[in-house]
């Protein structure tokens, strides 16, 4: 399968942040979520992809077309939903829809209407007058129907109410099923990540860590409840402990060590995604 998006050796200095070198590919049929602390450079990476921020070095290709070259045909194949949009304030939803739908040859009007109905988005008010939540809903209603192979969503659910979040999940699932498409998104909501993501990438100190498949990531982070005294020195796989439990990211090694030391555990379980991500984002 060929990649929709190929990011190779990309580096960028922005103020005090050095981003990169970044390598990442996005394959059709997948949803990848990028997580990282505030200010880690997630939005900057999206802007680099869109060529809204110029890269210092490296290559970014959408369907094999460099996004900083003179051939701008790639723009028809990607939808980018930023956290904040500039220039929409004076226009109503209807007006914005007229502008945007004319730019995308595969615009799906029925889907737009469906999202508007489902999320009850007011179309005749100026964008500036809408609440943050309604602005975000309108942005989504104007993003999904473009039907581009790649959808970049920068924190798409941060202002949504609970029912809207649920509806959006279903909309995104349906959207994915329409063809060989992919979503690359950022989110701080572990519920979004649990329900939608296949892969997780972590951006830390400007570096992008490996692409993790969600289940294998969860499966190999385990907590062992132990009532005996643990040895002081580090246990293989140990990434945390308290007086009652041990946390490991290498269960096989940990278990064989514990067995060898004849330390028994009363219970073991996988960690919640939120705990795992905290670990990955904050690990030094």
């Amino acid at each position: 399968m060929t990649s929709l998006l190929k990011i190779m050796d990309v580096e960028k200095n922005v103020d005090t942040l050095h981003l990169g070198p970044i390598h990442l590919t996005i394959e059709p049929g997948t949803i990848t979520t990028m997580v990282g602390a505030n200010g880690a450079g997630k939005s900057t990476l999206f802007k680099l992809i869109m060529n809204l921020v110029k890269r210092d070095t490296g290559s970014i290709q959408l369907l094999d077309i460099e996004t900083n070259g003179s051939d701008e045909s790639w723009k028809q194949h990607i939808t980018y939903q930023a956290q904040t949009v500039i220039g929409w304030e004076p226009f109503t939803g209807t007006k914005l829809k007229d502008f945007i739908s004319s730019l995308y040859p595969h615009w799906n009007e029925a889907l737009f209407q469906k999202i508007v109905d489902l999320l009850q988005i007011p179309l005749d008010e100026r964008f500036a007058k809408l609440s943050q939540g309604n602005q975000q809903k309108l942005q989504l209603a104007l993003a999904l129907p473009r039907n581009t192979p790649l959808l970049l969503l920068d924190e798409p659910t941060s202002f949504l109410d609970i029912p809207a979040k649920q509806k959006l999940m279903n909309l995104l699932v349906e959207w994915m099923e329409q063809g060989d498409r992919a979503i690359f998104m950022t989110s701080h909501q572990s519920a979004d990540i649990m329900k939608l993501s296949d892969y997780i990438v972590v951006l830390r100190n400007g570096k992008l860590m490996n692409k993790f498949e969600k289940e294998s990531l969860i499966h190999r982070h385990r907590r062992y409840w132990i009532s005996e005294q643990l040895p002081e020195e580090g246990i293989p796989g140990e990434i945390g402990r308290s007086t009652r439990y041990l946390v490991s990211n290498a269960p096989e090694q940990t278990e064989s060590f514990l067995q060898q030391e004849q330390i028994t555990w009363t219970q073991q379980e996988s960690l919640d995604l939120e705990e795992i991500l905290t670990q990955l984002i904050e690990r030094r």
Binding site: G29, I31, V173, E177, K195, L196, E215
Partner: peptide, 16 residues
């Protein structure tokens, strides 16, 4: 259910 829909319901990846 489709692979994607079941992945959402069970909160797994489509790979699983």
């Amino acid at each position: 259910p489709s692979i994607r829909a079941l992945a959402k319901d069970l909160e797994t990846s489509v790979i699983t």
